[in-house]
Amino acid sequence: MEGKRIAVYLCGGIASYKVVSLVRMFIKNKAQVRVAMTKEAQKFIQPLTLATLTKHQVYTDLFAENNQDFVPHIDLADWSQAAIVAPATANIIAKMATGLADDFVSTALLASTCPKYVVPAMNEHMLLNQATQRNLARLQADGIKVLETKRGFLAEGYEGQGRMPEVEEIYAWLVQQLEVKQDLKGKRVVVTAGGTHEEIDPVRYIANRSSGKMGYALASAAAQRGAEVTLISGPSALPQPMGVKFIGIETTAELATAVKRAYPTTDVVIMAAAVADYRVKKVASQKIKKENASWHLELVKNEDILFGLGQTKRNQLLVGFAAETENLLANAQAKLTKKNLDLLVANDVARKDIGFASDSNEVTLLTKNQEPKHLKRASKQVIAGAILDEIVRLM
């Protein structure tokens, strides 16, 4: 962080009080910080507080300073090496997504060409509204990094999604983003993500609970670190990460074909997909009618893709995942050995606060002839960075 020029854009949400500690953390780690606030943000935090911390005036009004030598919002935009929007309200997210500029904050953000980082915080219903989700997807498609919100006790007095992460997690995420290493430059990385679907009849299929969030976070992080990334994904509602080659698949057989095609010229394969172990032996050509009290499906084993890759690997580094509900380390260690993996990421999917569909994860990294390394609960973006650090070390 030392010497980084960071513009913090403070918006009008109850979580704005946390940003004071975030600004202090930046300054403590020798970053240069300037702050701009919306009119609504000033109802929660006094500009004087942040001016005292940063030793610089706080920008609040687009027309307050009529300086002939420079235009303040352009000056701030040109000065910044990074722009942090926190808490990012539904309002500022909508403005950024549509290019609206009607106050100092939105105008300076529109003029900024530096990397932008958005930390949303709002009511769950506002967050999950289709308009907000479209706007967040638009920001990500435009290359703006968005930190996922937490589930927790909201200002409205009930539990829900939309809570702003704690300052320490925000800072760790920003450090990871701002100080991105290029230690995977020139490497070809394949990441598999999401679950697979196995057809029963034209309208039904066997699936699992995987959302694809961990795999997508890994693909995005690897691309940021300079890798040439191919993401092979089962059905997922997530937007495709920027800067990666995307291959969509549905069945385990399709996943196997895509991975094998890429494998010979790949340096690292990260098998984060939750692959269906079985498929229906005989798929019905027409919809099966609900005529009987019971229904028996005959299942046959799918190909063990990861095992096959482990048997045929040459110079590739092979990473697997173990989603377990019991005996986590014992089962993971057996899988590491049996499938000839270089690294195995084990997580307990019986827990509701991590794993499938969660924004957070807590995992243990296993390698050959070394003690397991535990990564405490954090966002999947932060966990992805730590996994890639271990991959680089092994390489």
Rank of each mutant, 00 (worst) to 15 (best):
V345C: 14
K301I: 00
L344Y: 12
W295V: 04
R314A: 11
S294A: 05
I305K: 02
T312L: 00
K352L: 12
L328V: 01
E303W: 08
G310R: 04
L318G: 12
L318H: 08
N327V: 04
N347F: 10
L328E: 05
A322I: 00
G310S: 04
N361R: 14
E326L: 05
A350C: 09
N292T: 04
I354G: 15
A323N: 07
D353V: 05
L309A: 04
T325P: 03
N340Q: 13
E303L: 08
E324Y: 09
I305D: 02
I354W: 14
E291I: 01
N331I: 00
A346E: 01
V300T: 10
D348C: 09
A322N: 11
N340G: 11
D342S: 12
K290F: 00
H296M: 04
K335D: 01
L336K: 09
T325I: 05
V345N: 14
A332S: 14
S360C: 08
S294D: 08
Q311G: 03
N331E: 10
V345G: 15
K313I: 09
K352F: 13
S360D: 14
A332D: 01
V319K: 00
G308H: 11
L297R: 08
A334C: 03
S294K: 10
D304N: 11
K290A: 01
L344Q: 14
G355T: 01
